[in-house]
């Protein structure tokens, strides 16, 4: 018994020390390769594209229940609402389509992107509100409600399109590095990093909850959660995961979460958009 336990403890130590160090300077391409390799080794039976299904790629019983839910998607009404909002004329007569001319062919897979003009990381939600303000409308509140509905509509139009986030220059790489640092940094009273739960211990249970791999986490957002009783954005989820470790969450769509989304989404490059999704 004793020997077995120390063997388990030793195995855990090894798995932690094998984890790639956050401080090492590496190009985004190198990071991406290492990230994919890590999850491929950890979950050899999960095909690359199946990572978009989060915990359901790991737990066949939960997957069955979830597939039943997806047959009558709880977010369908949100896609409809988002579509209406997207095509409803502003007071000036224009619609959101004027800001997103390519929306029909699917645009979500290209977000977030580094805007070389402003030097900022632009997320889809940020641009939805920028579009409203540019047209003399009030911005939507972040997190849930109409912003999530519009985002769900645009995600839906991108289904099957592969995530293609780019890091075009040094300034963009600086934002990427900020996001990467955020992801690997311990925080909160409980001293936990995103990577602790979603890289090193992905596939383990925290209480009864299975921890999803970080690879593929962003593909199905915005997400309908039964816990929320509705749809929420990725930044709402970031905020929840920060509170969970008793850290003060950052403002949604502030520079910290946008940088995090930039890194986090880049790590899922090549995976197809399957949003909006449904989760527990």
């Amino acid at each position: 018994m004793k020997a077995k336990l120390s063997a388990i403890a030793a195995a855990l130590m090894v798995s932690l020390s094998m984890a790639f160090p956050a401080a090492v300077m590496a190009s985004p391409e190198d990071d991406l390769k290492a990230f994919r390799e890590y999850f491929k080794k950890r979950f050899p039976n999960v095909p690359f594209e199946d990572f978009v299904n989060g915990v359901y790629a790991l737990d066949p019983a939960a997957r069955e229940q979830w597939e039943a839910i997806e047959e009558f998607p709880p977010y369908e009404i949100n896609i409809e609402k988002g579509k209406d909002l997207f095509h409803k004329p502003f007071k000036n007569g224009k619609t959101m389509a004027s800001c997103f001319p390519d929306y029909k062919q699917g645009i979500k897979q290209n977000y977030p992107y580094f805007d070389t003009k402003s030097g900022k990381v632009k997320t889809l939600e940020l641009e939805i509100n920028e579009c409203r303000e540019k047209n003399g409308e009030k911005p939507f509140p972040w997190g849930k409600g109409p912003i999530a509905d519009v985002s769900a509509y645009l995600a839906y139009l991108s289904r099957g399109k592969k995530i293609d986030v780019k890091v075009p220059n040094k300034a963009a790489e600086a934002e990427y590095d900020k996001g990467k640092h955020f992801f690997y940094a311990k925080r909160g009273q409980l001293n936990l990093a995103c990577a602790d739960c979603h890289v090193y211990y992905a596939g383990y249970h925290i209480r009864a909850d299975l921890l999803s791999p970080a690879l593929g986490q962003v593909t199905h957002f915005p997400v309908y959660r039964s816990k929320w009783g509705g749809l929420g954005t990725l930044h709402r989820r970031y905020s929840g995961c920060n509170k969970q470790v008793r850290a003060k969450p950052f403002p949604m769509q502030g520079p910290e979460y946008r940088a995090l989304e930039y890194f986090h989404t880049y790590m899922s490059n090549g995976l197809p958009i399957n949003g909006p999704g449904a989760r527990k």
Binding site: L5, L12, Y204, D209
Partner: peptide
């Protein structure tokens, strides 16, 4: 959960 070793012995 099963993140840490079982606390026994």
């Amino acid at each position: 959960g099963d993140i840490g070793p079982p606390l026994v012995a």
